[in-house]
Simulated assay, not measured.
Amino acid sequence: MIDMVSAIEELSGLTSRELGEMLKESENFVLQVKTEDGGTKQVDMEKLVSSLPLHLIAVCLELKRGSDLSYVLRGMRFLHSLSELAARHTRLEQVLLDDVKLSEQVMDLIFFVLSILSHWKKENQLGVSPFIHSSLVAASLHLLTSYFSSQWHELVHILLAHPKVDIFMDVAFDSLHEDVRSLSHRLSTLNTDAFLGPFDSRHTHFICQQCEASLQFLLLLCQQKLFRDRILKNEELSRNGD
């Protein structure tokens, strides 16, 4: 067993280049990681990678506060980096991409995170900020292209083959709607006393960027005829006029 939390917190702070170099220099797929006290510890990447999706799902199942979602966001971005590096590291590709069961877990993770985010306004006992929410929506969507396929027609076939594709459509659009509503509210305070100045402005700009990234992703999916046709058959989206 490894300490998943500390391993993710330490490795997710690395750039893709730094992580790639460490993987190249590793022996038996074990990384030597520096700890906060200046020491080093070993991280078995095969155990970490193969446990990562289920670990993040388990964290989501026990969400109690906004900081938990910050950790999930870090884990999702780490998984994104690993997916991009897999094309250049045979062992990482074998562990992360060639395992059908692990691929199913990654898809479950994406669907589950979006499901949580889609109910954010209704069940905001998590205390998650619009900043984290919009970042996590964008990260979840774009993990689909980094992990499964960057070719849109291939990604559409993968999604349509999934038994929960209609749920994905519902929660993906609902999550983005939450972000747009939050952004609209923030923009409405620009010229009021509720606006907090440059810091609030930077946050608003970042949320806008994340909304744009999510919107562009869904737009590109909808440009694929098969996906667009499935949306028209989706009773929930059709009823809501989405």
Rank of each mutant, 00 (worst) to 15 (best):
R88C: 07
R88W: 04
R88Y: 07
T90R: 10
T90M: 04
R91D: 13
L92N: 05
E93G: 14
E93Q: 14
E93R: 15
Q94M: 11
Q94K: 14
V95S: 08
L96R: 13
L97G: 08
D98W: 06
V100E: 14
K101D: 08
L102V: 09
L102F: 02
L102W: 06
Q105T: 02
V106Q: 05
L109T: 08
L109D: 05
L109Y: 07
I110H: 01
F111V: 13
F112Y: 13
F112A: 03
L114R: 10
S115Y: 05
S115R: 11
S115I: 00
L117D: 01
K121P: 01
K122H: 09
E123C: 04
E123N: 13
Q125C: 02
Q125H: 07
L126N: 12
L126Y: 06
V128T: 15
V128P: 02
V128Q: 08
S129F: 01
P130R: 03
F131V: 01
I132F: 04
S135F: 01
S135A: 13
L136T: 06
V137G: 06
A138Y: 02
A138H: 02
S140Y: 06
L141Y: 04
L141S: 08
H142Q: 11
Y147N: 03
Y147M: 03
F148G: 07
S149F: 12
S149G: 13
S149L: 14
Q151N: 11
Q151S: 06
Q151H: 10
W152L: 11
W152A: 07
H153F: 06
L155P: 03
V156W: 03
V156L: 11
H157Q: 15
H157V: 09
I158E: 07
L159M: 14
L160Y: 05
L160C: 06
A161N: 14
H162N: 14
K164G: 00
K164E: 11
V165Y: 10
D166C: 09
I167V: 06
I167A: 02
I167R: 09
I167K: 07
F168P: 03
M169C: 02
D170M: 12
V171W: 01
F173A: 09
S175T: 02
D179I: 13
D179N: 13
V180T: 10
S184C: 11
L187V: 12
S188P: 04
L190G: 00
N191M: 08
T192L: 08
F195D: 14
L196G: 12
P198I: 10
D200I: 01
S201W: 04
H203M: 11
H203K: 13
H203S: 08
F206T: 11
F206K: 12
C208T: 14
C208L: 15
Q210M: 15
C211V: 15
E212C: 04
A213L: 05
S214P: 01
L215E: 08
Q216S: 05
Q216Y: 02
F217M: 09
L218N: 04
L218E: 03
C222Q: 12
Q223G: 04
Q224M: 07
L226S: 13
L226Q: 12
L226T: 10
F227N: 07
R228I: 01
D229C: 05
K233S: 09
N234Q: 06
E235R: 09
E236I: 10
